[in-house]
Design a protein around this nucleic acid. Sequence first.
DNA 1: TTAAATTTTGTTGTATACAACAGAAACTAT
DNA 2: ATAGTTTCTGTTGTATACAACAAAATTTAA
Lengths: 215, 215
Amino acid sequence: MAKQTLKTKAYDEIRKNITYCKYEPGSVITEEFLQTELNISRTPIREAINRLEQEGLVTIKPKKGIVISNLNFEEAGMLYEIRLLLEPYVIRTYGNRIPQQTYVEFYKHFTDLLSAEASESDFDIDDNFHQIFYNVSQNSYLMEMNNRLSSQITRLRILTRIQEKSDLIQTTHEHLAIVNACLQSSWEQAAELSIEHLKRSRENSFKLILSGKFK
Amino acid sequence: MAKQTLKTKAYDEIRKNITYCKYEPGSVITEEFLQTELNISRTPIREAINRLEQEGLVTIKPKKGIVISNLNFEEAGMLYEIRLLLEPYVIRTYGNRIPQQTYVEFYKHFTDLLSAEASESDFDIDDNFHQIFYNVSQNSYLMEMNNRLSSQITRLRILTRIQEKSDLIQTTHEHLAIVNACLQSSWEQAAELSIEHLKRSRENSFKLILSGKFK
DNA sequence: TTAAATTTTGTTGTATACAACAGAAACTAT
DNA sequence: ATAGTTTCTGTTGTATACAACAAAATTTAA
């Protein structure tokens, strides 16, 4: 495993706190706050913050503080637009690179998800599902793009409380359908199913945002 | 205009030096070198370097130095893969948002390019051409992605000496054809033309890379 | 000569002090 | 009371010193 520097430690920690909405969207924090919270000096904190700004998770207000990025209707629209463009593409183009072993793991995850109670780790599993497709592309731009999207998507899911059991089950069934299509090498069908999945997911998010359930 | 901090100044300067290959791909530089070269202290230099690493233009080797990223066959393939995915999409989807005024500017650039000698500013003009399409999408992820791609594409063009007059003329004619299609609201045709343009461009780059003309 | 151990050197990693400044608060003149 | 001015406070911006460490160079032992 790679050497863990304080910079990466700070980055991981802060990013996690943002994605899981421990730091609320729109709120303002200071470097000093992070310093005492993480017990790490300013330099690594700043480097982490700079990176997070680059990734769009925070905005640095000069001489004022660090604003945790908001997640509004427009942002959600942009996120899903990109996913709708990229995911069908990677499935169609690189689906055939997914190793057999990965399917075994998928099915294990699915049975876990359908049997167990909802928990925070579900997000990671769901992220992981999407990530696989990007990783097999071996295109670092695609992988990096997924990385950017995933933290925002996770935040969106948490804010819209979409992790409720009923939705989790539906999502899992949709994932299952996609995987089944892949196993039959029906890439075009798998791509179409992923479009359906993303569109439903998007509409669900939009609905919840507009209902004012969040923010 | 936004406040220029030393961090952004260092970033702009170093990025320019990398894109225009003043710092050669594969070569190793140190923070101290940049410090004396730009006459800026380490802290802003580091922040700039961190950002450039994030964007893939450099790799920081712990305790060793800063490696200017290489541009090889695989990297070029990844770049064009993304462009081939994104550009037809933005043209098809957002072409109709391009204001009339922009077309006037396009034609002015084209006539300039076809009449004048090749110069460094041609790269900016070409970048600008592609950038317009991403900007009208108003999707920050797409715009950011273009930003990432453009510096790499520029490096590729410089390294393959593709700016030679004959290629410049061909490129300009292809751009002209795309713009003409847009003006007639033939978005599908414009998208197809952009695919042709990118594919030819890619093959040209591949050819030059393999001929060993560079690196 | 060769292999292992040690020292040295160069570079980034981290901590911290001070400067600059934006915005709020207090003050002043009318 | 209000508009303008000044002062103050909190936060980030920048500079710099020192620590940690990877790799090269040197030394040592056989």
